[in-house]
Design a protein around this nucleic acid. Structure first.
Lengths: 119, 119
DNA sequence: AAGCGTTGTTCCGCAGTATATATAACGCAA
DNA sequence: TTGCGTTATATATACTGCGGAACAACGCTT
């Protein structure tokens, strides 16, 4: 007999913008982290369940849109090559993590306010 | 000869959740406002450049997911029928506007922090 | 009784996107 | 020199969401 409203909350995510172009959101940040762990675009794509091309496109777009490379790629060599996060890339994912904490706190406040407003 | 980074900023939007289902985001809120102004789902869809079906689906989903109706629909009659926002719907768009202000302020802080972190 | 414009509902086609496949280039190691 | 696993790139294929068309129902007005 519920004449009660469904429980209300607020969901939100954020994206880093380079100028007016989207640089990275949650997915791309996770991709950067996974590339850092695996040392390979292909392995990162595999682990995240995405196609290699999608991962490569994402990395390429990020490198182009930001002024400096986030990921350096090496072709050939003993292990076939690989990819590594630059110092700039490390800073970006660190900065994102800091912002994410702020964002979570903000979200909790928004949800509380919403419930207060809607009774 | 810019070795400078592209100007960084943060973009974000939020959605109202009913339980674990998405209730409304910016687009659906604007749809509710337009329905309120035009008194018709069809006219609102037309003005917003979306298909009637998309608008109808959105209204139906919102009504089902929240405990109470946001929009009441009338079939037939002199003008063919129409749609009106309930008091519950009015409260929701009002609440969303309040949250949006908070969110904008939050976003400005996030952007400032990002620029500080990335130099 | 007929007309009108809306709500309500189904179905098909299309376009844009993502995925899969294929292939070349690379450079170190054995 | 051959093999390997990766980066890099082009092409073809599959998928999925969305729009548009089509049609019934409704109820007030004339």
């Amino acid at each position: 007999m519920p004449e009660t409203l469904a429980r209300l909350a607020v969901r939100s995510q954020f994206w880093l913008m380079a100028g007016d172009e989207s640089l990275a959101g949650p997915g791309r940040i996770e991709l950067l982290r996974t590339i850092d762990e695996t040392g390979s675009i292909r392995q990162a794509a595999l682990r995240m369940g995405m196609s290699y091309r999608a991962a490569w496109d994402a990395v390429d777009a990020m490198n182009r849109r930001l002024g400096c490379d986030l990921v350096t790629r090496l072709t050939g060599g003993r292990s076939g090559g690989g990819a590594r996060l630059t110092e700039c890339g490390q800073r970006l994912i660190a900065a994102y993590a800091r912002l994410e904490q702020d964002h979570q706190r903000h979200l909790a406040r928004l949800s509380a306010k919403l419930q207060k407003l809607m009774g």
